[in-house]
Design a binder for these strands. Structure first.
Lengths: 108, 108
DNA sequence: CATATAGGCAACCTCCTGGGTGCCTATATG
DNA sequence: CATATAGGCACCCAGGAGGTTGCCTATATG
């Protein structure tokens, strides 16, 4: 799973329920399915499916402990998503910089 | 549309076709529907639908010019997505920093 | 051992999404 | 003016996503 596809990553992030789960994990804690679904108004199975999506996208780690399964945020995935966005921004910046240089060179 | 919801934003980003469109716009250029669909192996209507999604999420600006409609990347939206990811990361960082301080205080 | 709790599996349902087509309007252009 | 081109609108279709329920296994615990 070294190569994380951006589309899958963003797709997994594209759901408010999953974002709230990730927020809950964002302090580095590790939570079970029941804990993650607490207060979410959807069934335990619904929660499990969301976690499958997050795990499939590489956004969370899954670790079995006794009869529980604990989930933790995978920071690399968050950074992979950020990297994609950064590339878009830097390309924009690069173009503006080149444009600025061109204008200044020709005009000034 | 000042308030961009992260879920909708990421959802719009969660498609390889749309990501490629955004990449094509990432240098700040402005392209028509036909231009954006060039080489994409989907119909013009398919392209238009993807652009509707991107526009609905606030990721692109739409500007009519003659008989064409030109699309341009909205950088604010990209930054909004980055901000969400940054918040997750910073919360993690904060927790690790506090943990580190606690350990060093108690142990050293 | 009996029971409660955490989770998995599979079936099912509904709605959205990604894709298409056909036909319409509007703008360029010979 | 006739024609070509850019888009829009409406409808259609198949498949996936989000959600549920029922029933199963596995681990704790009185």
């Amino acid at each position: 799973m070294s190569k994380v596809e951006p589309a899958r990553l963003f797709s997994a992030l594209g759901d408010a329920t999953r974002l709230s789960m990730l927020s809950r994990l964002s302090d580095g804690c590790t939570l079970s399915i029941v804990q993650l679904g607490d207060g979410l108004a959807i069934s335990r199975q619904g929660v499990a499916k969301h976690l499958d999506v997050l795990h499939g996208a590489g956004l969370v780690d899954r670790r079995k402990s006794g009869r529980e399964v604990h989930y933790a945020l995978r920071r690399e995935a968050i950074e992979a998503a950020r990297t994609w966005l950064d590339e878009v921004n830097s390309q924009w910046d690069g173009t503006l910089a080149r444009l600025k240089a061109f204008v200044e060179d020709g005009d000034g």
